[in-house]
Write a protein that binds this DNA or RNA. Structure first.
Length: 303
DNA sequence: CATAGATCCTGTATGC
DNA sequence: TGCATACAGGATCTAT
């Protein structure tokens, strides 16, 4: 279940261990893992071998490794999405193959290899062109269609609030729309909505500017905290992203907590099916429609 | 164009 | 014990 925080932890680990290394060999063990690379496994390998990885970047849940040839500025990148069960492992070459090993990368040095392991094969890798991101940087073409994520310094907060309030869709649906803001998945959406005391089924157009602004702040806060907890493994050689960022077990207030007391008010957390997914919320803290609490008059005017 | 639902995958857990 | 079903869920495709 990697969402933005888990992907960021992986990005940092890959940056730490793979930057500066030259690809010597690529082995695709399952074609579905590179289905987004339309030219196929041969071309995939050909476009990687001999290039040098010059960093690791991320937008939302996508991450990519810019590739340089002969010291030139990178024009392509290895793009990855972990899907639901993907892992990128930096591991000694003589370690036994994982059961769901899909792609293996060996390097020109004696260091550890990079492995893409993915049980459910929703994730995938591709080599893609880098294109202008409209702000002096570059993103791979397959990433250009999603919005910046809330932790991006160039994230347009004003536009986000405007967009959310222009949509009649449920707010949770909007949070999960990667073109509005990227990086938020089912878990952190529920956690941010719980923190903001907003029911996920409320229409975006029914929220005040203040409510959307606070919700965005809660999205940022919960993700930042998750990164901080997962980040303790940056120095480990074994970069694991199996959904568990360290945040899962201890800190989740709502997600997966059906029947458990709300940490704020003690009311049992409820689970409903929503968008063909589970949604967890506190029925007292997150009423469907805001009941007459404090900022009622101000909210009415703000509309 | 925007929106909503179906679909892809496989391992685990649960029900009968 | 065995079999069937539900569930996890991000992105993409299709239909409205």
């Amino acid at each position: 279940m990697p969402e933005l925080p888990e992907v960021e932890v992986v990005r940092a680990g890959v940056h730490r261990w793979i930057s500066g290394r030259t690809v010597a060999d690529v082995e695709v063990l399952h074609p579905r893992a590179i289905r987004r690379h339309l030219e196929g496994p041969r071309d995939f390998a050909d476009r990687l071998i001999g290039t040098t990885v010059v960093g690791a970047s991320r937008r939302g849940k996508y991450l990519w490794l810019p590739l340089s040839t002969d010291g030139e500025a990178p024009e392509t990148a290895l793009v990855g999405h972990l899907g639901m069960s993907g892992q990128l492992l930096v591991i000694a070459s003589d370690a036994p193959d994982e059961r769901h090993l899909r792609v293996r990368f060996r390097f020109a040095d004696d260091g550890p290899e990079l492995r893409f392991v993915d049980q459910r094969t929703f994730g995938g890798l591709a080599v893609a062109e880098l294109v202008d991101d409209g702000a002096g940087g570059h993103v791979p073409a397959p990433v250009a269609h999603i919005g910046r994520d809330p932790l991006d310094p160039a994230f347009d907060e004003v536009a986000f609030v405007r967009t959310v309030r222009s949509k009649p869709s449920e707010i949770k649906r909007i949070l999960l729309d990667q073109t509005v803001a990227s990086g938020v998945g089912n878990i952190y959406a529920d956690e941010a909505l719980w923190r903001a005391k907003v029911h996920g089924a409320r229409p975006g157009s029914g929220l005040t500017r203040g409510a959307v602004t606070r919700l965005l702040a809660d999205v940022r806060e919960v993700m930042s905290q998750a990164i901080a907890e997962g980040g303790t493994s940056f120095d480990a050689l074994y970069v694991n992203v199996n959904g568990e960022s360290g945040y899962f077990d201890r800190r989740l207030a709502a997600y997966g907590q059906e029947g458990q007391p709300c940490p704020r008010c003690g009311t049992p957390i409820r689970r409903i099916t929503f968008m063909n997914r589970s949604s967890f919320f506190c029925p007292r803290c997150q009423p469907w429609r805001p009941h007459g609490r404090a900022p009622q008059h101000a909210a009415a005017r703000e509309r």
